[in-house]
Design a binder for these strands. Sequence first.
RNA 1: AGCACCGUGGAGAAGUUGGGCAAUCUCGCCGGGCUCAUAACCCGGAGGUCGCGUGGUUCAAGUCCCGCCGGUGCUACCA
Length: 707
Amino acid sequence: MKNNESRYIVTSALPYVNGVKHLGNLIGSLLPADVYTRYLKLKGKDVIYICGTDEHGTPSELSALEANVPVDQYCNEMYVVQKKIYEDFGLKFDYFGRTSDVENHEITKEIFLALNENGYINEKTSTQLYSTNEDRYLPDRYVNGICPHCGYENARGDQCEGCSTLLNPIELINPYSITDKESPIEEREVRHFYIDLPSLQTKVEKWVDSNDQWPTTTITIAKKWLKEGLKERSITRNLHWGIDIPLEGYDDLVFYVWFDAPIGYISITKKWANEIVKKPELFDKYWKDKNTKLIQFMGIDNVPFHTVTWPCSILGADQGYILANDVKSFQWLTYEKGKFSTSQKRGVFTDTALELYPPDYWRYYLLLIAPERQETDFQWEGLQSAVNNDLNNLLGNLVNSIVTFSHKNFEGKLSEITFGDKEKDLQDALKECISEYTKTLDEVEFQKPLKAQRKFWQFANKYFQEKAPWTSIKTDKAATASTLSIIAHSLRSMAILLAPFAPFTAEKIFDQLGLDAQSVHELKLDDIVDWDCLVGTTLPEFKGNLFTKISNKEVEALKERYGAKEEAKEKKSKKKYKGEKKEKSKKEEKMKESDKNTSDLIEYDDFVKVRFVSAIILEAEPHPNADTLLVLTVDDGKRKDRKLCAGIRKDYDAKDLIGRNVVIVDNLKPRKLRGVLSEGMVLAVDDDEGISLLRPDRSVQAGLRVS
RNA sequence: AGCACCGUGGAGAAGUUGGGCAAUCUCGCCGGGCUCAUAACCCGGAGGUCGCGUGGUUCAAGUCCCGCCGGUGCUACCA
């Protein structure tokens, strides 16, 4: 039955070794790849799941520096930490390796040499900034300085956030290292190897075009890069931590992490073949046989590397490695309407998640909201609802019910099933569930197969309710026994279907049904429907609830603790504002009513907190990135270079504003508006005719306080 | 700025590739039923001009086209 086509390699984007990942990273590739692998196994396919840590590059070096340990030791430690977390989440890799392993060094060098042999490698020199105290060359994003175009003081090496001009770090005035601001900076000539992507464009384009079954987002991104035309790309860096260049005289260089990281998929498989299963011949069978299907999971940011640059390396090296058959990408997961942020401590990280709740709670909820088509939002109430309503009420309670009822009346013995109309409906519902489940999983979707399962859970509850065994027990014991038995069999099917998504729960259900818990992972699609395998067996005594509900109190506390509160409030008020705007245009009367409301009076003390001062406009120019904004330079009595963004462009010409008196809010927290820092706010009113700036009755000097 | 994606009842999502009879699901809300189980489960109901345009195409648009507004991401040496 197993033919050549049923061999798969599933990969998840390699998590960077630096630090514990948040839930977005988990659902963005690791978790779906695990579910998909488990599903392929359920289908009886020959499949391996390959992942590992991506370890090279500047961030590793810096993190190690901060932790005050050698970088290799740092990576060793973090590798262990991450690996443990993923295992605890039930991610069942065939092998979780590392890009710093010797196999990756070897294969990366081989690929480089092959590319060089085939004429796709060029050497070039460029000027790079070097931080003398740190003894490091500075990647673009690790250097800040004054923007030569707009004078913005903290322009990044790659792009000025003030005027959004793309920059080369050597253009910066007074550049400094963001990791050591005091360190003197030198310009140094360095030579680097470049991969000649332009020469490989036709080949990779042909390959991309042959993959019209890819998800749309994947294709769109790949084609966009190709359309713009590929540029030569440097594949080496002046770092210490990385893979050496296998040529004489380049001891100061290592490969750029993005060159060697994806090669990790190959090298980790090699290590798996050699050391885990000890069948070295499997390596070629998986990676060099055209009948292997490579399915890669990743966040959307990784798509260009997996559809364009890495395939270019493989195609250019031409060593027979296969390319991806499917590149499944995920959008971002947001956290309570904001971003997950390591620095601001917003969001839940994988280690703390496991301390809070069992892995299946997270797996179920995250997969239910998997950001497949669009960004989706993690919300504590969502987790609560998924756990309480879906898992506990529908599934857990049904198990609970059957076991206790059966023990009360039948000593846990399961009888044969008598099939009537209702039973046939239940069978049909399961068939439909399986059909939806396989159809959507074959399309590499995750929300839908879960929802299909939930639908069946509901159906089973409904059946149970309609059969009302607590009533029938009084009159017809045999029929009641049959009802319990068919539900017990349904639960067995549910467990098998659920196993790829929530493996621990599936095991628990099997255990409660008196089956071997581990066997739930070994059964195949054909084993799911079975209406007599439990007949005559005895259910074990009730082993306790499958789930524990999450209380409202807990949710409140969690929100507080993990930084969800503030942001949520902010967003709410934003929404309200939007809503008001809508009403304003449609139902203005309501607005007037709310104006009359006197409950919003403030104390004098509140008023004096806001410092309104007079100012004079010195310059005005259009905002580079926003059609509605003007950037004003004003004299506020203290400085003559204060910049304010004002949304008045549709009603004012920049040139008419020079020299005008205005009133500004002096102590408003500066905020960046579309890339330009606005230090304050100009007062204006707005009616049907447009915007009108406020000004003193006669011309006055700048810096006078409004009182 | 360019490009891409997104904007669907109070909340979160599906539906947009191939336009078609009642816009789907989960939660929340209102009312009812049942009691084996963890205030569970089951049934019924209210609530949406599918961001905006009195825009275009069409017999027909949430779905295609145009414009606008809002949000997010990417723009190649952070990974």
